[in-house]
Design a protein around this nucleic acid. Structure first.
Length: 469
RNA sequence: GCCGGGGUGACAGAGCGGCUAAUGUGACCGACUGCAGAUCGGUUUCCUGGGGGUUCGACUCCCUCCCCCGGCACCA
C-alpha cells in the first residue's frame, strides 16, 4: 500500500514521496536533559521509532537524526539549584534517557546531535540571517530573529500574528522589537556557560540548534520532521522562519508530524502539576514491552489520558498476543513436518500481513495494526488447536517476527529461556508421571511451588507449557 | 479571543457515504481440563455530544451550538 502521512502543514493526509528516491531524512525534536524522562517523552519517541522502523521495513533508507538541547534555561536553572556543572547534569540525564530508550526498544535513531557541538553552524546561520536583514543585535548583545521579515510566519500552526495574545503564558522580553521575535543568540550573564561569537560570549537560542543541525546533516531541505504537538508553535514555526529565511528554499521540511500528549486525568503531564510520571517509575511495575504496547495502542496523533489501570489493561491485552507468539514458537518445534491439512493458516497469515501493512501505511495507524494482530492471533490459536503442520506455523512465526520488528514488540529473550528449558523439562516430566498416577496432590504441589517462584505451568491438550510470570 | 485536535458501547479505542460499529479489557454462559490457566465458541453495548442541512441513505460530508484537551511567543 502506498504510504500516506498526515502533514501538519497541509492538515491532510498526503502521499509520502521523499525528496531523493528511497532515502529519507528524518529529524525529531529531542530532549533537554535536565530531569527524568517521563511518559510523555516515551510516547513521542516510541511513536517516531515506529515510524522509522516501518519506513525501513518498506525499503526506505532512513537517516534518523535527533537533537539534544544540552544548553538551555532549564539546565542553567538546574545548575544553580544543584551547584553542579551544566555538562555534568546533561551527561547524567542523557545517560538515563538512553537507558530508558533502550529498554523501550527505541533503537532506530542514527545520530544524537548535541547543540553545543554545532556552535560554528549556529553562528554561521545567525550571521547569515543578520546579513539578510532577518535578525538584529539587541542592546545586551543578544541576537533576535525579526519575525516581521518572514511572510510565512504562522503557516504551520495557522496562527495570525495579530490574533495571538502576547505574554499569555510567558513574560515578553523587553529587548524584543516585536513580541513574536525570538532569540537566536543569548548574551552571557554572570556565572553562565558561554561560547565565543561575533557578538560576544553567549549561547544559542532554543530554536536555532535544530536548523543548524539539520542543514549540516541533511542540507537545505529534508523529508520528515517530528515532535510533540506542543512544539508546533512557536518552536517549529521558528525553525521554518530561520531556515527558509536563511536558505531561501521552501519548504524547509516536506512533512511535519506531531504526536499527541500524555494527559493525566485530563491535564497535560507536567512536573509543575505534580502529575509527572517518570518512565523509570512505570518500568518498576511494568515490563518495557507492556509500556511500549500501551503507548502505541492509540493512533500517534491522539492523546493518551494516563491512568495506572490502563497500563494494567494493556498488560493483559499484550499478554494475549505474546501468549500466541510463544505457542507458535513452541508448536513449530514439536509439530510434525506434515501435520493435518492446513485449516487456512497460510491464507490468514497472508491476509494479516496485507492488512497490517494497509493499517500502517495509513498514517502509521498502530491501533488498527494491533487489531489485525489480535485477529491473526485468534486464527493462529485455532490452527494450533486443529493440529496444523510445521509449514504454516513457520509462516505464522515469520509474520509475527515481521510485526514485532516494525512495532518493536515480541522481542524474546532466548538465552534466559534456554537455560531453564532442560530443568523444567525434567520437573514437568516428573509432574506428568504423578498426574498419570492420579497423584494430583503431588502434581499440584509441583505446580504451586513453581508458581511461587514465578513459573506458571499450563496443561494444554497436547502437552504442558510453562512461562515466566 | 484566535489557532489546532477531539467528543463512539461498562472501560479503552479504530473505521467507513449503505454490510450485525473493528479490536482489546471487563462481566456472564458454554466447550476443553482431575482442578487451574491458556485457548476456542457464544452472550453482553442496536449506538457514535445537541440541533439543523445535503443525500434514496450520515457515525462518516456541510452549517451551527455545547463540552474537553493542546498552543498563544524557552514543554516530548
Amino acid at each position: 500500500m502506498p504510504l500516506r502521512v498526515y502533514n501538519t502543514l497541509s492538515r491532510k493526509k498526503e502521499a509520502f514521496v521523499p525528496l531523493h528516491g528511497k532515502r529519507v531524512s528524518m529529524f525529531v525534536c529531542g530532549i533537554t536533559p535536565q530531569d527524568q524522562t517521563h511518559l510523555g517523552h516515551a510516547k513521542t519517541y516510541v511513536a517516531f521509532d515506529v515510524v522509522a522502523r516501518y519506513l525501513r521495513s518498506k525499503g526506505y533508507h532512513v537517516f534518523y537524526l535527533q537533537n539534544v538541547t544540552d544548553i538551555e534555561d532549564r539546565i542553567i536553572a538546574k545548575m544553580k539549584s544543584t551547584r553542579r556543572a551544566w555538562d555534568d547534569i546533561v551527561a547524567q540525564y542523557f545517560a538515563e534517557f538512553r537507558d530508558v530508550m533502550e529498554r523501550l526498544q527505541c533503537t532506530s535513531v542514527d545520530v544524537y546531535a548535541f547543540a553545543t557541538d554545532y556552535i560554528d553552524e549556529i553562528v554561521e546561520q545567525i550571521q547569515g540571517l543578520i546579513r539578510k536583514g532577518h535578525a538584529y543585535v539587541a542592546e545586551d548583545k543578544s541576537v533576535y530573529f525579526d519575525t516581521t521579515t518572514f511572510s510565512g510566519w504562522g503557516k504551520l500552526s495557522g496562527q495570525k500574528v495579530e490574533e495571538l495574545r502576547p505574554g499569555a503564558r510567558i513574560e515578553i522580553e523587553e529587548r524584543k522589537r516585536h513580541p513574536a521575535d525570538f532569540v537566536l543568540w543569548r548574551a552571557q550573564k554572570p556565572g553562565e556557560p558561554a561560547w565565543e561569537s561575533p557578538w560576544g560570549p553567549g549561547r544559542p537560542g532554543w530554536h536555532i540548534e535544530d536548523t543548524a543541525i539539520t542543514i549540516r546533516h541533511f542540507g537545505v531541505q529534508y523529508d520528515l520532521h517530528g515532535g510533540g504537538t506542543e512544539l508546533a508553535f512557536p518552536h517549529h514555526e521558528a525553525e521554518i522562519a530561520q531556515a527558509e529565511s536563511f536558505t531561501g528554499v521552501t519548504p524547509f521540511v516536506r512533512y511535519w508530524m506531531h504526536g499527541g500528549m500524555v494527559m493525566v486525568s485530563g491535564a497535560e503531564m507536567h512536573k509543575s502539576l505534580g502529575n509527572f510520571w517518570p518512565v523509570q517509575a512505570a518500568l518498576e511495575r511494568y515490563e518495557p514491552e507492556v509500556l511500549r504496547f500501551f503507548l502505541i495502542n492509540v493512533q500517534y496523533r491522539g492523546p493518551i489520558d494516563f491512568a495506572p489501570e490502563l497500563l494494567e489493561e494493556a498488560k493483559r491485552s499484550y499478554e494475549r498476543l505474546r501468549e500466541t507468539v510463544r505457542s507458535v514458537e513452541a508448536e513449530r518445534r514439536r509439530a510434525p513436518p506434515k501435520g493435518k491439512a492446513d485449516p487456512g493458516l497460510r491464507d490468514a497469515t497472508k491476509n494479516s500481513l496485507a492488512a497490517f501493512d494497509a493499517a500502517m501505511s495509513d498514517d502509521f495507524n498502530t491501533r488498527e495494526a494491533i487489531a489485525v494482530l489480535f485477529e491473526f492471533a485468534r486464527d493462529v490459536n485455532k490452527a494450533i488447536e486443529s493440529g496444523v503442520g510445521r509449514g504454516p506455523l513457520d509462516g505464522a512465526a515469520e509474520a509475527f517476527r515481521t510485526f514485532g520488528d516494525v512495532l518493536g514488540l515480541f522481542q524474546m529473550k532466548p538465552s534466559e529461556t534456554d537455560r531453564l528449558d532442560g530443568v523444567l523439562d525434567l520437573i514437568v516430566g516428573l509432574r506428568e508421571d504423578a498426574r498419570k498416577r492420579k497423584d494430583f496432590a503431588t502434581a499440584d504441589r509441583i505446580r504451586d511451588a513453581l508458581a511461587a517462584v514465578g513459573i506458571v505451568l499450563e496443561d494444554a491438550r497436547d502437552g504442558v507449557r510453562w512461562k515466566l510470570k
